[in-house]
Nucleic acid binder design. Structure first.
Ligand SMILES: [Zn+2]
Ligand SMILES: [Zn+2]
Ligand SMILES: [Zn+2]
Ligand SMILES: [Zn+2]
Lengths: 137, 137
DNA sequence: ATAAACCTTAGAGTTAACACTAAGGTCAAG
DNA sequence: CTTGACCTTAGTGTTAACTCTAAGGTTTAT
């Protein structure tokens, strides 16, 4: 299977596949006499692993770590894998908390603004951003 | 007030102030005979506006828009400001939803893994990432 | 045999919001 | 009058995950 075909199968771009190979996420495949990459089922499996790991929020760097562990299962522990997962989950939770603060502030600002098509000289949102006491306490 | 002094007052870096000026977020101040930037209260107010807008999640690009509206209040409406705010809030909400999906998946994965220091050959997390049916349905 | 569709590499571009560096001019204190 | 702290510009580096471009070689179908 050449790169275009594999890319179509897993719904990724050929650029992405070459990039993953360069980053050590996808095994370098054999090459044809003319230098074309020749992929097999193993590569498709790797790409599906990558896809699923991305779908739960892992970065490519983290996925590379997971793939390595998966490749050398005997030399790694469940603890290691679980730690990676929990650490990622906590980072995600932190980011969610930050965004929820944003969301609350934006909601509060929007609520107080009349939203009319009249000139904005009195706009409470602009006032809040200007004044020291516009937001919070 | 020179740039270092102002930067200290608002707790930002001098690089950041020059960057804001270049991006049109901070008015270009007068210069001394030797070319030093000379800031006043107006600039401090602008920086505080920027700080507060950042604190509720606006990007610098969005802040530039808000500053422009704030500067020409008569030519803009509350509706415009409120729309910006609501649009941003909805984007934030979307991102939160995505991260919450990540969080749920990661929690589920972690829950199923024994986390022991034994070899990872049986690890349910790796299995889930490998298998088609490991996650979701 | 030739055109369309595919493949190759290397390298630059994208986005955000700065941080860092170099090479040099200025200002206050002692 | 010299040190040290401050300022200037222009330009490069950072992170993530690719995308795009250029310049060319290969395969397949007609
Ligand atoms: Zn209003
Ligand atoms: Zn308003
Ligand atoms: Zn286990
Ligand atoms: Zn496990």
């Amino acid at each position: 299977m050449r790169i275009g075909e594999l890319a179509k199968q897993v719904d990724m771009s050929t650029d992405a596949l070459r990039y993953y190979e360069q980053q050590g996420l996808l095994s370098a495949p054999q090459r044809s006499a003319s230098g074309y990459r020749q992929y097999g089922g193993k590569h498709m499996a790797q790409l599906r692993f990558i896809r699923r790991a991305k779908d739960v929020g892992f970065s490519l760097e983290e996925i590379a770590e997971l793939l390595k562990i998966n490749f050398e299962k005997a030399e790694h522990s469940c603890q290691e894998v679980k730690d990676l997962t929990l650490k990622k989950r906590d980072l995600v939770a932190q980011r969610i908390a930050e965004l929820q603060r944003f969301h609350a502030s934006l909601s509060q600002l929007a609520e107080q603004c009349c939203g009319s098509s009249a000139p904005a000289q009195h706009c409470s949102i602009l006032t809040a951003l200007e004044d020291i006491d516009g937001l919070n306490q």
